[in-house]
Write a protein that binds this DNA or RNA. Sequence first.
DNA 1: CCAGACGTTGTT
DNA 2: GTCTGG
DNA 3: CCAGACGTTGTT
DNA 4: GTCTGG
Length: 226
Amino acid sequence: MCARYVFFSGRSFGDEFGVVAVPDLQPRYNIAPTQIVPAVIQTEKSREVMLFQWGLVPSWAKDPTIGSRLINAKAETLAEKPAFRTAFKRRRCLIPADGFYEWKGEKGAKQPFFISCKHHPFAFAGLWEYWEGVEGVLQTCTIITTNANGLVQEVHDRMPVILAPDEYDIWMDHAIAPARLEPLLDPFPEKEMTMHPVGKMVGNPRVDDPSLIEAVATGGLFGEAP
DNA sequence: CCAGACGTTGTT
DNA sequence: GTCTGG
DNA sequence: CCAGACGTTGTT
DNA sequence: GTCTGG
C-alpha cells in the first residue's frame, strides 16, 4: 500500500509534468492521509496543479469520513468498483512525490523503509473526486496501488503505481481507450528504485523533517541490503 | 419494488 | 450514480 | 501507515 | 477493542 509519502521538490517539478503555474509548496517528508496534497489534472486546455484532500470521497457518499479509508485504490479492480470507476474514466491525476514509506514486521516491532526512484521527483498514478454535502465541498484524491516489484517485495506485497514521464500523456488523455491504460498500472522497474531502513519517528504523523528519510542501521534484521 | 452498500490494507 | 441483496 | 481518542452529568 | 483523525 502507500500510506505515507514524501514530496520535497516543490515548484521544480512543473516543467517535467507539463504544468505552467505551480503553487509554492513546502517540502514535506511525512505526508499522511487526510492531509492536503498537490496533484496535476488535465483541463480542456492545459495541465494544472490543484490541491486535494488525500482520501477519496465518492460523490454519492453520505459520510465523507469514508475518505480516510479510501487512500488507495487497487489497480486490478479500479474499473469495476463503484467508488472508483467513474473517477478512473474521467478524473485521473498525477501526484508528485520524491519517495514513500512502507513498514515491515509485526505489530509493535515494525521497521519503516524509505523507498524512492533514482530519478525524482516522479509521479504516482492517482484519481480525484468532487463531493458536495452539508459539511461543504471536498476535492479528494487517492493513490493507485499494484503488486510490489522484486525490491519492494522484501518489505511489502503492494506498492503505489509510479508512472514514467513518457506515460503522462496517455494517463492524462480523457479520450484514451481503457485498454491502453492497463499496462501503465504495472509495477515500476525495480532497477530504477532504491530502498533503505529509516528511523521509527516517521510513524508519528506530526513529525515532518528531512531526517526522516535518512538511513539507519538495523543490525542486519529486516533483510535489507548490507 | 425498496433498502443498503458502495473500499483498502493488515491483522486475527 | 449504480449494483446487489432481500 | 501510526497516533490518539474513546463519555456523561452536573456545575461554573 | 475499535473507530477516527492526521
